[in-house]
């Protein structure tokens, strides 16, 4: 009930964004899955609406998107399914919406995870960014509300940031559609394997923690040699995450493999 197909495309400014075709709730035969993650109240739903042409409610208030919303768009002839994850501050807690977001990024293995950050509060948003980069290698950071940040005297050097994080960084103002085209382009490039990310991995100064993680990573490598995010899994084990324990027991974890950096395999299936 929350969404409605927009029949009035021609009026909105993104209509002219090159090669974007909004598919609304039509997600048949998609080639790639794109996940939208981010802190609450960063304009995630606005980006979602631009991609899909749907009208999710957006509000200047945390906690609007409670359930996962899905939609679709077509770009350069490829069909993308977009999953708008609940806005969370972190992926480490035990709350239900964090579990949804965490499990989707890990087990759902989206082809691209778009992390929407509020440029005016980037430092705090990086908390979530770094956590996501522990889970997935294929992510792009969208610096939303960049106009507001600039107005407040905050300037962000995206090139340095991109280099530090090892993923593309796109400044956008989703409300007016600025930067969305670049974002789409980079999503396309990552999904099709033309852009390969080398994401930043957290460095901990605690040698005890490092030792424990390494011990578990070694064990995990024996059992699941193809697992791409062993450090994250090790961390979750140390946190006692039930869904990870279950997936180890059931062997599901073994199915998570580093996807070959080419969308072609995906298309064939």
């Amino acid at each position: 009930m929350k969404t409605k197909e927009n029949t009035n495309c021609a009026n909105c400014p993104v209509h002219n964004v090159g090669h974007l075709k909004k598919l609304g709730i039509n997600m048949d035969n998609f080639d790639f899955v794109v996940a939208l993650a981010g802190n609450p109240n960063t304009g995630k739903s606005t980006v979602f609406n631009y991609f899909t042409g749907l009208r999710q409610h957006t509000g200047n208030w945390p906690g609007k998107t409670v359930t996962r919303a899905e939609g679709g768009f077509e770009y350069e002839g490829k069909k993308f399914k977009v999953v708008d994850l609940p806005g969370t501050y972190s992926l480490l807690s035990t709350s239900a919406d964090e579990e949804v977001a965490r499990d989707f990024i890990l087990f759902g293995q989206p082809d691209v995870t778009v992390i929407i950050a509020d440029s005016t509060r980037l430092e705090r948003n990086l908390n979530l960014v770094l956590q996501i980069l522990e889970i997935t290698d294929r992510a792009v950071l969208c610096l939303n509300l960049i106009d507001e940040a600039n107005r407040n005297g905050i300037s962000i050097n995206e090139r340095i940031l991109s280099k530090q994080l090892g993923i593309p960084v796109i400044p956008t103002t989703a409300r007016s559609g600025q930067g969305i085209n670049e974002l789409l382009k980079i999503i396309y490039e990552i999904a099709t394997g033309r852009y390969v990310c080398k994401p930043f991995k957290m460095k901990t100064h605690s040698s005890d923690l490092n030792k424990s993680i390494n011990e578990l990573v070694a064990l995990l490598s024996e059992q699941f040699p193809d697992l791409p995010n062993k450090r994250w899994v090790a961390l979750r084990l140390l946190e006692g995450d039930q869904s990870i324990i279950n997936s180890i027991r059931s062997g599901e974890l073994g199915n998570l493999k580093t996807a070959p950096s080419s969308g072609l395999v995906e298309i064939e299936k």
């Binding site: 501050y89 480490l92 807690s93």
Partner: peptide, 11 residues
């Protein structure tokens, strides 16, 4: 519990 975690999530 959750209270502590939420505060830490907020920075």
């Amino acid at each position: 519990g959750q209270q502590r975690r939420r505060l830490m999530d907020l920075g």
